[in-house]
Amino acid sequence: MRAYDFAAPRSVRSALDKADAGSAYLAGGTTLVDLMKLEVMTPSRVVDINRLPLRGVSLDREGLHIGALDRMSDVAEHRLVRTHYPVISRALELGASPQLRNMASIGGNLLQRSRCGYFRDLSTPCNKREPGSGCTALEGQNRTHAILGTSDACVATHPSDLAVALIALDAAVHLNGSGGPRTVPLADFYLLPGQTPHLENTLRPGELITGITVPALRWAVNSTYLKIRDRASYEFGLTSAAVALNVRGTTIVEARVAVGGVGTRPWRLHAVEHALAGRPLTAATYEQAAEHATDGARPLRHNAFKIPLLRRTLVRALTELGDAR
């Protein structure tokens, strides 16, 4: 690990003052400490933000508010989250392990870095880690990589389960930096890799995530997250689906659908939502809608299986939600 200096400020103001382009904020450390050991991340200063007052889950007319430093385990088990937005609880519970969820924060989760083996290995080229060096995964081991939103510079999957649930729910992130506070819809926060995969989001240097807001959505009570993995637990998803259905009688009025494990960023599926709206709650509806999930998909040598797997994941999630009513 490279040397760095360490600060543990007590206020947002002082944290922002201590941060610069070469520094990194430390929340749970489950991404940062791992990547500092690998020397994939080499900050000159680590600013521990755990003493900042950025915690608290609440619900009001606007929706659900979660602090950047709330822990995955606490948010997953929070009564308000479980009752009103089960898709968020499920997405959190199905991620990482109990120990990691006790450590990992909501802000850190949204900023976790790629699990691509080449990104984590300094001895192989990776455009995300070292712009212009090339992408080893394109012709290398790419079974777990993305099929949606890829470019010839990067095919890494966005690893966060939480972000998939949040993007389905139109959540927004609250930021604070030298330019003052601002709020950005999560849909505009994450960038496609294009030719600049090292730029993953629109966070400015030294900017802090202070919290998130999930807009009020009454029918989010009817939502779920399904994750398909190589093993039953403690594993990233090969495919996953966040689904919410607004149902009247036996008809779907409106749907929210996003998928994970397949995109270079958390992937909202508006086409699937349109295909579900106004249709009856039947297997045929789910099958036909799921066809649209892989519109524009570009499989690599080892991951073409994700095309049928993603459609089936979606059909199963929709079926479980439809049946549960």
Binding site: A8, L26, G29, T30, V33, D48, N50, S97, Q99, N102
Partner: peptide
């Protein structure tokens, strides 16, 4: 952070000591 062998309790919660900085 991938095996759990280093699990300890910090302030009553189980965490991974390999990804916890002593300073933090």
């Amino acid at each position: 952070g991938q095996c759990g062998a280093c699990t300890v309790h910090v302030d009553g919660r189980r965490v991974l000591s390999c990804l916890t900085l002593a300073a933090a």
